[in-house]
Amino acid sequence: MRYLALFILSFLFWLLLTLDVSVANLITGAVAAVITSLLFARYFFDRVYKFLQPVRYFWFVVYLVVLIWECIKANLDVAYRVLHPAMPIKPGIVKVKLELQSDFARTMLANSITMTPGTISVDIIDDYLYVHWIYVRSEDPAEYSRQITGRFEKFIKKTFE
């Protein structure tokens, strides 16, 4: 099942990338997609039927809007810290408790954190995510967990888990 899902996804990706429906191109894409799905399907999602639940696509769009908005804010924030003559930075690595369980949802959360205000995910050990933060706003674990993961966690939970 997951072989088929990955094959369809990679074949669609190939078609988008080449935008060409000649027979030779379709065969090349099919062969490449078969190789991809044979090699990588075991890293793919366990429960493929989740692709067919429309409500997840709705939350995905909401998540994208939130992500793009946070991304723009992140850039203005970093640009301000870089250009300010005194460079107001206070960096440090903080530890955040993860609420999400599945690997893919955790990957998406770590990616979103890397793209947003002054934070880069460093590592996940057990249930804790280690985050490098350019300006540590608070010393209280509950408070900074809310500031770092709170913006995305509920959307990612609804979309990917």
Partner: peptide, 28 residues
């Protein structure tokens, strides 16, 4: 934004902060 990312790459003090500037400004 790419220019600001490059300025940050030079001005910020250590590798971790420089990566912040390089990834965020570079990507957006």
């Amino acid at each position: 934004f790419n220019l600001i990312g490059c300025i940050g790459l030079i001005r910020l003090p250590d590798v971790y902060n420089r990566l912040q500037s390089a990834t965020k400004c570079g990507t957006l």
